[in-house]
Amino acid sequence: MELTPDLRDCFTVPGKLALPYTYFAGRIGSRFLLALQEEHRILGVRCAGCATVLVPPRATCDRCQADLADTWVEVGPAGRVENFTVVRYADRHVPEPVPLVLALIRLDGADTPLVHRLGGMDPEAVRVGLRVTAVFAAEPRDTLLCIDHFRPLAPQPSAAGPRPQGG
């Protein structure tokens, strides 16, 4: 038999990449998540080297390499929308419903904004500078979704207005 590369020999097969994992939150991550779950308090860590309050908390400051264990400070639950986008595509990994507003929210007392979703308002009415506050999940969760979403502090008009970006 001769080798004759032929498209008739080619086909595709549906498959999947699927792997079961057990992720570990670590000591600092667990403390952060448990404070969210059990006390509805949001914790950050403060680097003594650069005086930055980091949220989510972590073990090491990536600028100073300082050890951040046990440098807890409480932040939020209110904060300011520093930046946002509106995710308008649905996909397996995108929480419903779409459009989904993902915002960088700088919690009061924190220096690094946290990415979370905004709810309780018209996606077209989100603005940079909006004051928002955490809405905690009714049931305990093992992720940042202990905060279900952020909502505006003040009642928002539902009508869409001009967008903040150029053009």
Binding site: P56, V87, V115
Partner: peptide, 25 residues
């Protein structure tokens, strides 16, 4: 990461949206 950023649905398109919003202005 599975605890903080996956649960809210981030991917590179959404991250680029955030950057584009900040840059464009």
């Amino acid at each position: 990461d599975p605890f903080y950023t996956r649960p809210v649905g981030l991917d590179f398109t959404a991250a680029a949206g955030l950057q584009a919003q900040a840059y464009a202005a």
